[in-house]
Design a protein around this nucleic acid. Sequence first.
RNA 1: GGCGCGCUCGUAUAUCGGUUAGUACUCAAGAUUUUCAUUCUUGCAAGAUGAGUUCGACUCUCAUGCGCGCUACCA
Length: 509
Amino acid sequence: MSDNSGNRRVRVRFAPSPTGPLHIGGVRTALYNYLFARQHGGDFIFRIEDTDTNRFVPGAEEYILESFRWLGLKFDEGVSFGGSYGPYRQSERRDIYRKHVDMLLDAGKAYIAFDTPAELEAKRNEIPNFQYDATTRMQMRNSLTMPADEVRSLVDAGEQYVVRFMIEPGREVVVDDIIRGRVVVSSSILDDKVLFKSADMLPTYHLANIVDDHLMEVTHVIRGEEWLPSAPLHVLLYEAFGWQDTMPRFAHLPLLLKPEGNGKLSKRDGDRLGFPVFPLEWHDPKSGEISSGYREKDYLPEAVLNFLALLGWNPGNDQEIMSLDELVGLFNLEKCSKAGARFNYQKLVWFNHEYILRKTDREVAELFRPILEEKGITASIERIETAVSLVKSRVNFVHELWDNSYYLFQAPAEYDEKSLKKWWKEDAPHTTAELCDFLESQDDFSGAVLEPKVMDWIASKGYPVGKVMNAFRVTLVGAAMGPQIFAITDFLGREETLRRARHALSVLS
RNA sequence: GGCGCGCUCGUAUAUCGGUUAGUACUCAAGAUUUUCAUUCUUGCAAGAUGAGUUCGACUCUCAUGCGCGCUACCA
């Protein structure tokens, strides 16, 4: 009874407006829809809601598509994917909307209104809290107050008008939300929403949304909380069309909030605190402004997805690292939280670190290779793999591998002053020179072989291990950093190790 | 202003009437280490407030406060 779609194939949609780059909150909404669809073996539809011609931004649609390709979220049907419920772009569905608007008009559930924006503006100034509804509609210029033939002649003459939904006051409208439970609103506080504009012969969101969801047999509407206030209107629309039996179930997701301070997450927060709020870098075609994206900032898509999944939902236990497939299995709309979630990007950085650790050295090496090439370094994938294995636990991002391993690929051009001050003093040059002579006598530089030999040698000399080794490290690395020293000599090999040590000796002595 | 939604450590959250209120991130301290990091251990830190229901409330109800959202011929 509460789930009137129980027998139908689950179908959900993500339906953005192509008004700019996809916001990270939109990504989360899409993710939840995706998880829900996959879990129920249903369909995930991509619809474009471009009914506002004024806000249309060229390139936005392709940007959104590319974002999902990067994230690995696949649609089953929709714009660019095909399907038998198309077209999936609302601007291509004019006839469908016109037909449905007429249905409401004929049934007396909607009416034509000629009030101009200027007239409405004047009305709002004149009457505080003016609302176009049952209490005011009879004072306005519409088909309710004007003779039918006058309405017809005005329309025929090309006079601009809108079609408004006639809300019957005094009703308790119930929205049965999966996350929030029963939300009841009085229809008296709703206004006669504009459903259709003659100016561009396009519907507004509300009408297009209901008609499309119905025609596309959408079973669950999973969307942001900002839509909750208009959900009663949508319920009323389903009723007006006589579609209440197949009305989708609603689930209104909590909003994504700023990391600090009040309000919902905005692009500004990202700029201010240094993290992107868009999946991909966005070049605004109008202003030329460039906004950073997660992909370009070197975040792994699986880390972004995992982090987003946990913003407003959790599996009910302490598990945090979950693959997309695991999420599909565990996800549950009923377990979504109701309160807005602050966007804690520090945790996202941690997720990125964890995902790098969980990838094989080979996989990370493949990601690191282009960065090395950019630095003018060519090395075999096996070499890179080894380097990665040595330092990957230190980084949060793939690009940080460079700062932590450049010395493996090129001899130090300079020596860190602090490290020098601490380790290159007194007899450091002397012991290092001696160590070089000893190494000269060694053929096998594999770490496992060389280490005990060097340690024995140091012991036989009676030198303090730390002093000798750290001075040696500085000659190889250029600073007091990096992994275990014999892992480094192993990587560098006999020749390169000795060359670096000798060079440092000549430069620093 | 109206309507709606929300409120557990700084953050994300667990708890579905009975717990020393758990976990993770962040931060701090200690241990480990021939460097830097990693790692490990420990620590800091929470039920907005006030009533009510109940043997018992973080959990249910109401009020207050605060926050957020919506209130367009935008979505």
